[in-house]
Nucleic acid binder design. Structure first.
Lengths: 187, 187
DNA sequence: TGCAACATACCATTTGGTCGGTATGTTGTG
DNA sequence: CACAACATACCGACCAAATGGTATGTTGCA
């Protein structure tokens, strides 16, 4: 397999660009901003080109979600593997995944969920399923009221971050993150 | 001034119906589901009738938000007035407003924010402003890390609730609520 | 040559929005 | 009270633009 970066036609690169642009548009102009026109144009491609990679608009949005889940699973598994203490390890990994990444940038899993879930309501169900499955998997180590609050607070944190955009209350993310992690350790 | 309920034509009732239908459609089919056609039809009125009450689609969505802020302000002020302890009183009121209401039904302030903020991104800014102002107002009683976590967790809670719709992890709301309130008292 | 990766042109439908009309009120005046 | 003058609430047809999607090219790499 050749290196993708050397070929003049780079389908994988275009695909990623399309997904990135879709997310940016979703964040900036709301889910309604994700039109095939706009996304294709932003990615420097025509509609036809977009439909070559994604058979429908819904597939595009679901691609966003699929990427999210893949990345999130990987991040969480990696973080849990590095965690010596079993109790609350999933919650810590979840917090880390929410806060770390290109801190609250476009690569953030929360952002991807946010955009995809609202652009295509069917995704909400899939997210609920994923989360439920993951939670069930770590039931023995992460099923306490305090840990639940920590996870909810993490969700609320990036939600608050998204809401500000410019000129809102920006919580001290690093301090908040450490405090949440601390809560999982003293539980 | 006559009682509105006596008149045969009840514009105020129609207005409310339009707003309610807009929110329902937003919750069920995502922000994209709020089309003037669909909303008008759901409210048993024509597009022309809708545009009589709201000069534009954006005005309709902003009406949703305006209602939210009004109700939220009232609820919070009332709850704070009943609260004997000053410290954390705003946060407790915020939690109560988030959880109580027609529990996570259409009358819930969170739902209104959720829908309006995503349907029209301009509303995000206005929400950020409202929250920032309210927070500044209660800076002396509610500006601690723990209270911030409580508020964020409350946000996360109704977000989680919205995400489930059917077949997701439904947190025990009453238990969670009590636990969050407790956190504000021992802070 | 053959096939993947795009572009171009086109289409049916839906979108938010306007406009003229009408039925139903409300109000001022004698 | 009567009755004109006006305002409100709503309808129904229409519109330009944008939408998701398709069908048919063209181009470049192996």
């Amino acid at each position: 397999m050749k290196t993708i970066s050397q070929r003049k036609k780079q389908p994988e690169l275009v695909r990623r660009t399309l997904l990135d642009c879709a997310m940016r548009l979703g964040l900036e102009h709301g889910p309604a901003g994700i039109t095939v026109q706009a996304v294709a144009e932003a990615a420097g491609v025509t509609k036809g080109g977009l439909f070559h990679h994604f058979p429908s608009r819904q597939a595009l949005v679901e691609g966003l979600f699929a990427d999210l889940v893949e990345k999130l699973d990987a991040d969480i598994d990696a973080a849990m593997a590095r965690d010596p203490k079993p109790r609350g390890s999933f919650t810590r990994a979840y917090v880390a995944a929410t806060f770390d990444d290109p801190v609250l940038g476009e690569g953030n899993p929360g952002a991807a969920l946010y955009v995809s879930a609202h652009a295509e309501p069917s995704v909400r169900r899939r997210w609920a399923d994923w989360f439920a499955a993951r939670l069930e998997r770590h039931r023995e180590t992460d099923d306490t009221p305090t840990l639940e609050i920590v996870r909810l607070a993490a969700d609320g944190a990036w939600l608050a971050h998204l809401m500000r955009e410019d000129g809102g209350v920006v919580p001290n993310l690093t301090a908040l993150r450490e405090r949440l992690i601390a809560m999982t350790l003293t539980d």
